[in-house]
């Protein structure tokens, strides 16, 4: 290691170098895909040692889920973990469908052997770990999980415009930009964007802005009837939205990491 450092000082003009490194990371092993059950248990755990989990990168392990347990509500789960200060950055042991869902949220897919090599070393930020994943030459496909998940309708300017109603069961994800909907969003539909979300019509489904952790992201809608709104993982469900804010134009934003809803 010392030799390496010496070298890098000597070749200081190089802007970066790619190296492999190993980290030990906490793993959240799911036995049940019911996110609410996870939320209850996790809440109790975090309460005991809140500092322990702060800024801790976490890998979500899906290998122990009963086979055929179906889709996991990744947006909710990731929001939950972020809400407790953790940095979920990858999954392992999932099936194809779960991996696709995870990739849509820009979670890295960690291969079993790669994860197992982890041995010693300090905990790191999620970003560093993903760099290592990119270096793993035997797995080029994992190097850019986010790009494969990019929706086709995203324009080059980095925003997405949807003019048709978003129906129950549909998901729209504007990766890397804003999402604008000029039609109703039905209950059971899910809007996700790395940037802001604008809805010119009733918003009855879920809206998750700032998916990549952007605390500045906002949600604007003409008629708030949402089931759930979330910004960078800080969420609120409909029963916690005051009645006077329902059915009116609002903006939703984070103020000191507290989700606020204000009339427009």
């Amino acid at each position: 290691m010392a030799v390496n450092q010496h070298k890098s000082v000597a070749e200081a003009h190089r802007p970066f170098e790619l190296k492999a490194a190993n980290f030990t990371l906490p793993i959240l092993r799911l036995f049940d895909n019911n996110v609410e059950a996870v939320a209850a248990r996790l809440g109790a755990k975090v309460e005991k040692a809140p500092d322990f989990f702060r800024n801790t990168p976490v890998v979500i392990d899906l290998g122990m889920l009963p086979p055929g347990s179906g889709a996991i509500e990744f947006p909710l789960l990731v929001g939950l973990l972020r809400g407790y200060g953790m940095i979920p950055f990858g999954v392992r042991g999932g099936d194809k469908e779960q991996n696709t869902a995870a990739e849509a949220l820009e979670l890295a897919i960690l291969r079993e052997s790669y994860v197992r090599r982890g041995n010693g070393g300090d905990e790191s930020k999620g970003g560093d770990e993903r760099e290592t994943a990119a270096e793993d030459e035997s797995r080029p496909a994992a190097s850019e999980p986010a790009q494969t998940a990019a929706p086709p309708r995203l324009s080059s300017q980095g925003f997405m415009l949807v003019k048709r109603p978003v129906r129950s069961g549909q998901r729209v994800y504007a990766s890397g930009g804003d999402l604008t909907i000029t039609a109703p969003v039905s209950s059971g539909a899910e809007l996700m964007a790395d940037g802001n979300i604008h809805v010119y019509g009733p918003l009855r489904g879920r809206a998750l802005a700032g998916m990549n952790g952007n605390l500045e992201a906002c949600i604007f809608c003409q008629d708030l009837q949402a089931e759930l709104v979330s910004i960078a993982g800080h969420y609120r469900v409909s029963e916690h939205i005051p009645i006077e804010l329902r059915g009116v134009p609002v903006q939703i934003f984070l103020d000191q990491k507290i989700l606020r809803i204000e009339k427009l």
Partner: peptide, 11 residues
Amino acid sequence: RDSDRMLGILS
């Protein structure tokens, strides 16, 4: 709600 879901699949 089911009709709404169906409309999503249709589109």
